Simulated scan of single mutants.
Amino acid sequence: MTIAGGIILIMLGAILAWAVEFDIAGFDINIVGVILMLGGLVWLSFAIYRLRIARRAVEPTTVVEDPVTHRRVYEERHYNDPPVM
């Protein structure tokens, strides 16, 4: 599930809805295009939601200064990391 997948569905739906002049008995290609565009919007919004959740799962970087060597140590922890033994 990526952002590109949602955009591709929206583009394919727009092409079917507005650029295709093809008729099949009992089948409206324009409606299929609108359904694909709506599905692409749902897919795109879900992909952006997942991206925001993934970015939120990282704690801010912690800076610790060693008093002996005066070096700075940068720590970054992820919530899904296994415990350090």
Results as ranks from 00 to 15, higher is better:
P82D: 12
Y74G: 03
F46Y: 14
A4C: 12
L41Y: 10
A47S: 15
L38T: 01
L41S: 13
G6D: 06
A25Q: 08
V34E: 06
A57V: 02
A25E: 06
A54C: 04
V32R: 00
V84Q: 11
D28E: 15
V63F: 06
G33W: 00
H70M: 15
A57N: 03
E59Y: 08
P83E: 11
A19C: 15
D66P: 00
A14R: 01
A19P: 07
D23A: 11
H78E: 07
G5C: 13
P82K: 13
M11R: 02
V58Y: 00
I7F: 05
V34T: 07
V64S: 02
M1G: 05
G26F: 01
D66L: 01
R55I: 04
V58F: 02
G40V: 11
I48V: 15
N30P: 00
I10L: 11
T69N: 10
T62A: 14
L9Y: 09
I24Y: 09
G6V: 08
V20G: 02
L38A: 02
Y79G: 12
V84F: 12
E59I: 03
V34W: 05
I7C: 05
E75C: 03
G33D: 01
M11C: 00
V68N: 06
A4N: 13
L51Y: 04
R77N: 03
I31T: 14
E75D: 02
W18D: 12
S45R: 07
P67K: 04
E65G: 03
E75S: 08
I35A: 09
L41T: 10
G26A: 04
P82F: 12
M85H: 09
T62E: 15
T2K: 09
R52M: 13
I10M: 15
A14G: 05
V20S: 00
L36T: 00
V42K: 12
I3T: 12
I35L: 12
G26W: 08
V84H: 07
Y74H: 10
A17M: 09
T69P: 03
Y79L: 14
I10G: 05
V58I: 06
G5V: 14
E59D: 08
A4K: 14
V32A: 03
I48F: 11
V68C: 05
G5R: 13
H70L: 14
E59V: 04
P82M: 11
P82R: 14
L12R: 09
A14T: 02
H78N: 10
T2P: 01
G13A: 12
F22A: 06
G5Y: 13
I31W: 08
G40E: 07
L44D: 10
V42W: 11
R52F: 13
T61W: 02
P67L: 05
Y74A: 09
V73G: 05
R71S: 10
